[in-house]
């Protein structure tokens, strides 16, 4: 149910974004990106790989897991690995509580992404909106410093956003 509501909201936003795009003709092929916030920056990933956005539920931490792995969670009968995107990007963790015992991260969201053969969950601070971006809106990333640089494929300045949005490479997010 909640997923449907969310989808509907996303669709609404997409329509709004599309209208915004209409005002700027001559755009070329447009790809949809889902924007979200981690720490204080905005990021985006192709909508095509987003399977679902869920409120974070019960997480079971996994000892010995690679850094950035928050734990596992049950999602539609399957065991999904959930990753702290903030830590994965070398930024501040979205989880305040240290990883002992079931972690509750209730106001955050988990993006269920299809990456390669696996569905992985990524914890983000906030889901923003869907951006429709054409090649023109995207600058190739060459000089983004720090750890984030390895995960970023491009930088966009969508008309709807005042901030710069960093486009992430999904494959580089797998631990």
């Amino acid at each position: 149910m909640t997923a449907m509501v969310r989808r509907a909201r996303m669709a609404q936003r997409a329509v709004r974004t599309a209208r915004a795009a209409e005002r700027r003709p001559d755009e070329g092929a447009v790809t949809e990106y889902l924007g979200f916030r981690v720490a204080s920056s905005s990021y985006a990933l192709p909508v095509a790989i987003v399977r679902e956005i869920v409120r974070s539920g019960q997480l079971t931490p996994v000892p010995r897991a690679p850094p950035g792995v928050l734990g596992i969670s049950s999602f539609r009968g399957r065991v999904i690995t959930v990753i702290d995107l903030g830590r994965r990007l070398g930024l501040a963790s979205s989880v305040v509580q240290p990883a002992a015992g079931p972690v509750r991260v209730s106001r955050l969201r988990i993006l269920m992404l299809d990456i390669g053969v696996e569905t992985l969950g990524f914890l983000v601070d906030e889901v923003l909106m869907v951006y429709r971006l054409s090649a023109r809106d995207i600058e190739r990333a060459t000089t983004v410093g720090s750890d984030v640089g390895n995960h970023v494929t491009g930088i966009a300045r969508p008309a709807e956003s005042e901030d710069v949005v960093l486009l992430l490479d999904p494959k580089a997010l797998v631990p």
């Binding site: 996994v62 690679p66 596992i72 065991v79 992985l120 797998v174 631990p175």
Partner: peptide
């Protein structure tokens, strides 16, 4: 249930 491929290296 098995753990996902991303946790395959965890023994």
């Amino acid at each position: 249930k098995s753990l996902g491929p991303s946790l395959r290296s965890v023994r």
